[in-house]
Amino acid sequence: MLKILKYSIYDLLRSRWSYVYFIFYLILGFVLLFLNNDINKAIITLLNIIIVLTPLIGTIFGVMYYYNSKEFTELLLAQPIKRSTIFMGQYLGVSISLTLSLVLGIGIPFVLYGLFKSAAIFDFGLLLVVGAFLNFIFVALAYNIALANENKIKGFGYAILVWLLLAVVYDGVFMILAIKFQEYPLDKFALISMMLNPIDLSRTLILLKLDISALLGYTGAVFKEFFGTSLGLFISLFVLFTWVLIPAWLINRKAGRKDF
């Protein structure tokens, strides 16, 4: 698997896009720090960008890489290599190289600004962990979609649709339901629906760590009680982990049954 992983990362490093992505985050990090002049505020702005952008980039990269490396995959399939090794190697290759772009791109400006002397280091670390999780989750979802669709246009379409559903539509539906049923106690419902969407879960997790939960009213207090504890943090990370494992397992299953 390491060989496949190495080739995938090597392949992506040559494709220029990883650099574009890295430089984008680098510029973003510097600009935010320059504009906000405060690490905590920069983290909040960054959060809003990471939460929406990493899933989108992960989705597009995942689908694109699958279709682009089809020839390579077919070549590998005729070699004495296990199928699951090929696909897991490629999946991890894409996810790891995207995560590297993210961590280095954002990490460098913050470290230069004096992150290690600031109290925000834990929040910042959590932000990067969450960003990495989102990369792994959405690349896995994208790979599943690409495996199921021979047609590139369809594959791209469905992948973007999944992103749109989880990043935008989900919140809209949640809001409508919350307003419709505002007379009922909704804290449990809110908590569970947050858990079921990795983007919302990531956002809530960090917002509550940043001590601005007071802005969220009563439900915010309930959330704070849950996410603020180490048990809450543990459960949230566990849920994020499950969000990686299930799609990754599905990739294996789908790939094992597919004809090439």
Binding site: R257, K258, F260
Partner: peptide, 8 residues
């Protein structure tokens, strides 16, 4: 391809 394991 069946012999190669590429088609199941």
């Amino acid at each position: 391809k069946c012999l190669l394991g590429m088609v199941i």
